[in-house]
Design a protein around this nucleic acid. Structure first.
Lengths: 220, 220, 220, 220
DNA sequence: CATGAATGAGCTTTCATTCAT
DNA sequence: AATGAATGAAAGCTCATTCAT
């Protein structure tokens, strides 16, 4: 009943790590498109090319499987962004690099992004907390970039201070704007990651008021 | 060969319009907190103080009930924002008014906002389209405010023009930022609607760069 | 809220007998086409132009309503057949007249015939018995016609006797043949009541005639 | 957040083919006695000694289960009749054999016969068509036997011809008579299959014989 | 390593029936 | 004479989960 050729055929014996990856891929795909509740273990197992009990053997339960998906995708997104940012650059350059990486990664992993941004946040505490932590970390990172920019500008003493809370608010706004643009890109399809990042840098860094006066943010 | 017994005691025999409102309120509450799939009709009926069949009699099906919730909440949010904006004011003042109304309304109707922002967008085409239409309308409105601001600034000839697509991108960013701040307010609890609107006006209108130089957006 | 013109308008007050007739008509129509279980009281009440409670007030329950339908239609069919038969005629002429009336009546009252022949017999004892009684009566009537024919033929002594059971069997066959032809007519649509009756008389009576003369079919 | 517990005790872990048969048997029994709408999947599952979900796993839905029953019973009845008939025999002997087989089979499979004759025809298009096809086939077969008998009798030229429609009408009558006698046997209980077949052959064939010789019944 | 067989629990939906007016 | 308001009960179907092999 088993096939002699190996490779994707149902019943073929594969090392656990490989199987687990197949399952997670299938799960991210299915959860991302259908949603946590609508996706069934049957569907996921089928897409992974294994039987349901094997999924349970390796991943224990639907809840744990989904958690594993969320963690994996969160880790991957964080890594993409972190690896793209050189902390020795000025703050605005760091932000530019991070945003570009964010838009690139979400476009290349739409299902993973859907799991994080849409599904995990919608389906109750256990998952929402996981993803909230990641988002808070990003917000904090952006807030600290804003703080760094303030120091770079050397305006600390002369200008009304930006309280920590203000910076968090600004960072929240910036992250939300990025999420929104990621969705827009997804629908539109013709906007490159750099376009999106540029739009956001102009918006955030220069401000609409300046923009209208002809001011532009540039990478140099 | 006989069937249902019928005719219990629970109901206080109210006119249909009243009952329907109670049901919709219960549904928005439940859908907003538990999610479309997890919420059960039984739960909703119980919260509304009626039996399940009455919910079906008046609202037909879970899907229709949810659609009705989405429509009602979308209409309410739109009305709040629209009514707060005086179209004779300058663009930035209009935006300020709209944002304040948005933050106020979402804070006062957290369940309705959850239905629109989280649940409806997550649970498939029929609902997502409904809410996407409302959001697109808001984005278009913001984009046209940006266009109006450009004309007000009288910079049309001298400065690089903002293409329609650019304006849409900026508007998408601004709307996403607002959504994000609404969520932040919700968690934080100590940020007033005016604080949030001010943060966003500064962020968007003045730009981080200017902000750091001490520039501020003010209502005058 | 009530209309001033009377006649079919919901809410109009009509004498009980009239209302009851409307309800029965609607019920026969609905039961005949949709079946006892599928037909809902709501549907019947709607078709009759009244509210559900009124149906209950007059006819008590679905079961009683259906029983009333069965009785009414059985009575009508019996009456049609009985009234067409002149007991002073010879047996074959009586049968001919009865069959013609049967085919005419069932074609003119397809819903009633469906209630009797299809629905009542299919949906459990209480109704099936009712209709079985009517059918048995018809079978008995046909059997007695066969007996009469035997006496008319004056063959009682000379030929192998037709036992009562044989006559019942023959009558059962004849009645079944008539039911089958009624259905065939209904589908075909181009066969007149007289055609059907003639087909059956040829089939049955020519055969019976020989039978009565002592003819028998044998396996050799 | 966890759901079903699963994995009970009832099942004796049988191969699918066996279980499927048990379910079909239970379904035919239940549908035949209680009717399509009244029979519940729970009842059928219980009678088959399994849980409801297993019935759905194997047979998909109530409708498909019923269709499968109708098909199986139709196939079985057709096979019984077909296998009993030797096409090299004269027409009357073929009819005799077929009728005997029909009466035997329906008596041995009363539930299957009820499903075909009573339930399937009563419960809407999808099923009625299935069974109508089988019945039409039987009618056509009988009609062609009548045609063969006419040729055997060599009366083609001398006597008024029997048009195709006439033969269909006669076949309809004969099949209806057989159905009726099958029901009669079922109630009476003391009539053997051969008795019933003999009654019908006498009734039909002696009549047909005369018919083929040019005899006709007339209203005068 | 991997699967076929099996089920408890729960959900949406429908319907006959009744009460208060 | 007639109806709007309301519900208990049950049915079809799905799903996460487990046991035996």
């Amino acid at each position: 009943m088993s096939a002699g050729r190996g490779g994707g055929v149902r019943g073929t014996r594969l090392p656990r790590a490989v199987r687990e990856r197949q399952m997670m891929d299938a799960a991210v795909h299915t959860f991302g498109r259908r949603g946590y509740r609508v996706a069934s273990m049957e569907e996921i197992a089928g897409l992974a090319g294994v039987s349901k009990p094997l999924v349970y053997l390796y991943l224990n339960s639907k809840e744990e499987l989904f958690t594993a998906c969320v963690r994996r995708e969160a880790r991957a997104l964080r890594a993409s962004v972190r690896d793209s940012v050189d902390p020795r650059l000025p703050a605005d350059r760091q932000l530019w690099a991070g945003l570009t990486a964010f838009f690139t990664h979400t476009a290349e992993n739409p299902d993973g992004w859907a799991v994080l941004h849409r599904q995990a946040r919608t389906h109750g505490e256990p998952f929402a907390l996981e993803v909230a932590a990641m988002r808070d970390e990003m917000v904090a990172r952006v807030a600290s970039l804003i703080g760094a920019a303030a120091r770079e500008a050397g305006t600390a003493g002369r200008t009304p201070e930006l309280a920590a809370r203000d910076m968090t608010g600004l960072a929240q706004a910036l992250v939300g704007a990025a999420e929104s643009l990621a969705g827009w890109r997804h629908e539109d399809g013709t906007v490159s990651a750099r376009d999106a990042a540029a739009t956001l840098m102009n918006f955030a860094w220069v401000g609409l008021g300046e923009l209208l006066r002809g001011e532009r943010w540039t990478a140099r």
